[in-house]
Amino acid sequence: MLATALSSARPYLAFARTSFLNILAYRARYFVGILTYFFNATVWYYIWRALFHEKGEGATLGGFTFPQMLTYVATGWALRSFYFNEVDRDIASQVREGRLAMTLIKPVDVQAMTLSQALGESAFRLVLFTVPIGLLLVLVYPVLPPVSPAALALYLLSGLLSALLVGAINFCVGLVAIRTTSILGVLRAKYLVLELLSGLLVPVAFFPEPVRKVLVWLPFLHMNDTPGRLWLGLATGADAARSLGLQAAWVVALLALGRLLWRATARRIEVQGG
């Protein structure tokens, strides 16, 4: 059982390894990338500091103390450095340039191939981005440790699900974007919308009540808000279990949606030849 699973995973491992090596070649981007994440977190540190300062020392905002908010920011950006991928851009350019027409005749699943590339990239980013960025942030700012070992475990599990979730979302987004001529424009809008809805910039608790009610039924807040709250112990017990369950369910649902979209795209490729 395990053996068959492993052997069927082998081609995907090869894809994962290739994207791993590819990134290594881009050294300039690497060093600048680390600094950028650090700088993003830094600027948000100042924005929150100003806001908390306005409210008075020891105040809470949206249920967060300032140290908690700082920790939310730091763990959020560190997590983004892990789950970030460009599956959408890749799949869109592959379809547009007709490179996927060839994979249609090969016995590989395009979605699985694409996602293993994304996960390979994430595994790689974990070592080269997330860990150094996390260390840098912990050294420079008073980041709170996870409230308990269990919270840490849940954060890690949730972070892994985030990576899957982002991969699944981006796969869909890429296939939708391909229907327009301004793919890059759509993807850019996606970043801005997801940065808002994921809770990366502002925790969901800050949204007006009606918006929040809608957001909890969407997948996006599981990208950042859910893992962030787990680390801080703002979601524990049944609440934590429900959040993780929803997160996992969204991964499955979006993977399924991706398959449907891919099937439609593949039909178009077969008809139009790419």
Binding site: F20, L21, L24, A25, R27, Y30
Partner: peptide, 14 residues
């Protein structure tokens, strides 16, 4: 010249 493999890629980083 890109050295092959992971070690080569790591070296190429520098």
């Amino acid at each position: 010249q890109k050295a092959p493999g992971l070690a080569g890629a790591l070296k190429g980083l520098f």
